[in-house]
Each structure stands twice: as C-alpha cells, then as structure tokens.
Design a protein around this nucleic acid. Structure first.
Lengths: 79, 79
DNA sequence: GATATTTTACTGGTATACCGGTAAATAACG
DNA sequence: CGTTATTTACCGGTATACCAGTAAAATATC
C-alpha cells in the first residue's frame, strides 16, 4: 500500500533497522553519501538506478500495478 | 507481480492501449520525446520524477514492498 | 557536560539526463 | 507499390544529479 512518494522515509527506516549509517549504505551501494542523503530527504529528481541500487541492498521491492496489468501479463512477448 | 526492471515495456503497452504516440505522451507529461523513447527502451538512468509523471498519466502505480513494511506502517510519525 | 558519531549543509568539478531539431529507418494504410 | 505516421537515432546546448571534500549542526555515548 505504500507509494513511491514516501520512498525516502521508507529507505531511512530500513537503513536504521539494518544498523547502517548513510555513509555505510552509500559505500555498499557504490554511490556517494550525498545521494543517500538526498533520497532520504525526499528528492524526486534522483536517478532510477541510484534509487533501485539502494532498494535492493535493503531488500525493498517496487511493484508495478495498474488496471491493465492482467492484459499485459497474459500477453506473450513482453520484456 | 511486475517489477520495475520491465517498466519500459509496461509503459509502452499502456501507452498503446491509451492510443497515444510517444510524442503525444511526452507532451501530456510535459517532457521531451527523447525521455519517453529512452524509458521505453529500458534506460535505467532516467530521473524518478520523469518516470513517475509518465506513470501517473497512464494510471500505473508503483507499490513499495518489503518484509519490514508492516513495522513501518504501524509506526506513527513516518512521512 | 565532554567526546564521539552521525546527519545536514555547502562547494567546485564532472558526468549525463534532458531538451528540441533533424533525419533515417520502420510500420500502417490506401 | 507509394504515401503518411510513427519510431528510432543522432546532434549541440543546457540544466542538474552526483561526486568527494569540508564543516557545522544534531544526536548518541560515556
């Protein structure tokens, strides 16, 4: 039920649960500390790959939902 | 069940269902045609806000999932 | 309260996302 | 087929994400 708009505070929550500082997470993800700080602060203009790298380290997944997804999934040849 | 990795082809599928060309979608979203083309092609280094603008127009939603999300949601004072 | 750790903030430099224009492939259609 | 619409590709220019330092708040630990 959680939306992408609150991804910053979600990342912060998971990072603390993992016992990591911003810098430690940044190093694990191979990005700068500024990127972690900016994303947790709610910056929307971050790059998708920077975000997804952090998410994968924290075991957070983004799921795509829409009324047409059933059609999409039943259709062969996607991806 | 669909992951963010295939967001490009998902967007393309929804755009066609909506009867829009890349340029029409770009104009609606207030972004350049290059951005739509790149995202549909699978570019991962796009900016999050560029992506989410397209998604909202096509009525596609990104949901955040993780084993710790229950804890996060029961905790007050997030956001 | 003093000290150490972490977070926040600012900076100059570099890489690149994004822009609109243009043009060549590719697809749709008579 | 020929014509039109769409997609793909490339371009120079501009804006900005990101980087590593540095330093000052804020927080935690003793």
């Amino acid at each position: 039920m959680n939306k992408i708009e609150s991804i910053g505070s979600i990342i912060r929550f998971h990072r603390k649960k993992a016992g990591l500082t911003q810098k430690q997470l940044a190093t694990l993800a191979g990005v700068g500390k500024t990127a972690v700080f900016d994303i947790e602060k709610g910056k929307k203009t971050v790059r998708l790959n920077t975000l997804t790298t952090l998410l994968s380290i924290l075991n957070i997944h983004l799921i795509v939902q829409s009324p047409l997804m059933d059609q999409y999934n039943h259709d062969e040849g996607n991806g």
